[in-house]
Amino acid sequence: MELVKCNNLCKEFDQKQILKNINLSISKGKIIGLLGKNGTGKTTLIKLINDLLTPTSGEILINGEKPGIHSKQIISYLPERTYLDKDMKVSQVLRFFEEFYTNFRKEKAIKLLKDLDLKIDAKINKMSKGMQEKLQLILVMSRDAELYILDEPLGGVDPATRDYILDTILSNFKEGASVVISTHLISDIERILDEVIFIDQGEIVLTSPADELRQKENASIDEIFRRCFKC
């Protein structure tokens, strides 16, 4: 059974169609790039999968069920903007995650934080932006989830942090689990993708295994994307 299936999914805001007839399936054990320019519906689609929005029409099934308590247990979600209370210390956030998610592996998070030399008693608002991004990623990747959804995990980070983020994703996703990464910074992440989904103006314009697409077009995913969506 597919991990995620969208059937004729539509979402409107104020009579404006943000997502039009999305049909999509995500299978197990894959790293998928959800690629599109800014404002094309990536975050809306992600929020629908995470049950933070409800579809105007059509349906989403997670492991065959409508999004709800069950899907929130199996999906580990990194939102585009932080939801952490910045007055908290790292240790408090860890406790918070531990109480909230039964599949949160606190020891794993502590180990990853240690590798970064991040002090457990540090306050979040005292940390640099890059460090805060790494902390959030560690929290998300330390859950034994079936699906990791990362919304723009590379937004505004330096190249060294970017490498760290890619490494952390690769070495920490549970075997058999899938990862969806939404981004417009394609060249940075394309080498780790199994499959790509191009989304534009609320519609899915292409889905393909990444290597097949490179072979067919004799170009990088980044280059193909640029050709596809030339402004």
Partner: peptide
């Protein structure tokens, strides 16, 4: 496969 993927920094499926 997983170890090799990690040292080469690629997706295990690849």
């Amino acid at each position: 496969v997983r170890e090799l993927a990690l040292t080469m920094k690629v997706n295990p499926n690849t």
